[in-house]
């Protein structure tokens, strides 16, 4: 348990941001509990890089982490950021309390596809509806990874998981469209295979006043890749292809199945069935932000006779 240091590799990689990470600052090594080939490591280090480069004030940018494999991101995110582990799905609600009690803060929320669109769907909708100033990441690996590979609301059509052993036939929920419909004012989707866009969107979200939703498509090799063929998503290739049992294969698959937003506009619904459309879906700066509006009410009520 607390002997995390022992479980970590001793190699000292030359990654320049390792010393800034939580475990890196404690043990001086590259600490991760993720499977090899997992996308969360990339996300963690990109986060730490931005946190360090943008010189974010750790007192004003708390990190609220939901429950899933990505909870272990706490080992890689910037050591100075104040991190709190929320309950499964409840991170947006916890962040609302934090933001409203201290409006100078801008919470950064980590959540997964199961966390945010499954168990915590309602909180997510209402966070977006209020347009509360915060950044929420949805890490979409198309599976419930932490509990061992069960079907998620985002699992692709025809994919296999431990709870959809024959095939997934449910409709897939789309975090981005949900966020747009619910009223979030900055909504974007990117993948771990596009780190530069990730950084661009994250920086933009940090400077945006309102709810920023960034969905990140990330590979889960262990529970999604090993069970599914790389023909998933490709048209007329059912049953063909090979298992995606390495990180490289999954990253290639993600790249093959991502479509830029302007391209997607020319495609039919059928063609987009198991694809990920990436890009910015909404950027609106003139919508009122909740804590600002509440502050106006407070001012009025305090002065009222």
């Amino acid at each position: 348990m607390s002997d995390i240091g022992r479980m970590l590799p001793n190699e000292k990689p030359e990654h320049p941001y390792v010393p800034f990470s939580y475990a890196g600052s404690m043990f001086g090594n590259f600490a991760t509990r993720f499977c090899s080939g997992c996308g969360y490591g990339i996300i963690g280090h990109l986060f730490t890089k931005i946190f360090e480069d943008e010189k974010l004030d750790p007192h004003l940018f708390p990190t609220i982490i939901g429950i899933g494999c990505y909870s272990q991101l706490l080992l890689i995110v910037h050591t100075k950021s104040q991190k709190i582990l929320a309950l499964h799905g409840r991170a947006p609600a916890l962040a609302t309390g934090i933001k409203m009690a201290n409006p100078n803060m801008k919470p950064i929320i980590f959540s997964g596809d199961g966390d945010c669109l499954g168990i915590g769907g309602n909180h997510f909708i209402h966070l977006c509806r209020r347009n509360l100033d915060c950044v929420i990441f949805i890490f979409n690996n198309s599976i419930y990874a932490m509990t061992g590979g069960q079907g998620a609301p985002t699992t692709l059509f025809g994919a296999q998981s431990t709870t959809t052993p024959y095939k997934m036939f449910e409709n897939r929920s789309d975090g981005v469209e949900l966020a747009v419909a619910a009223g979030a004012t900055y909504v974007a989707r990117t993948t771990v295979a596009h780190p530069r866009t990730f950084m661009k969107y994250f920086k933009k979200a940090l400077n945006h006043k309102g709810t920023s939703v960034i969905e990140v498509i990330t590979p889960c090799v262990t529970y999604f890749g090993r069970k599914n063929l790389d023909s998933l998503g490709a048209e007329n290739r059912e049953g063909e292809g090979e298992k995606m049992d390495t990180g490289q294969k999954m990253i290639d698959w993600i790249k093959q199945n991502t479509i830029r937003r302007n391209q997607a506009k020319l495609m039919t619904e059928d063609q987009l069935l198991n694809k990920y459309v990436i890009g910015e879906f909404r950027y609106q700066t003139d919508k009122p932000e909740y804590s600002d509006e509440y502050n106006k009410i407070q001012k009025f009520a305090m002065e009222e006779k």
Binding site: I64, I84, A86, L87, R90, P92, A93, L94, A95, T96, G97, I98, K99, M100, A101, N102, M105, N122, H123, H126
Partner: peptide
């Protein structure tokens, strides 16, 4: 669920 979580969040920031 949201009420109590927000209460905890608020308490955590003082």
């Amino acid at each position: 669920l949201a009420s109590i979580n927000s209460v905890i969040g608020a308490s955590l920031v003082g």
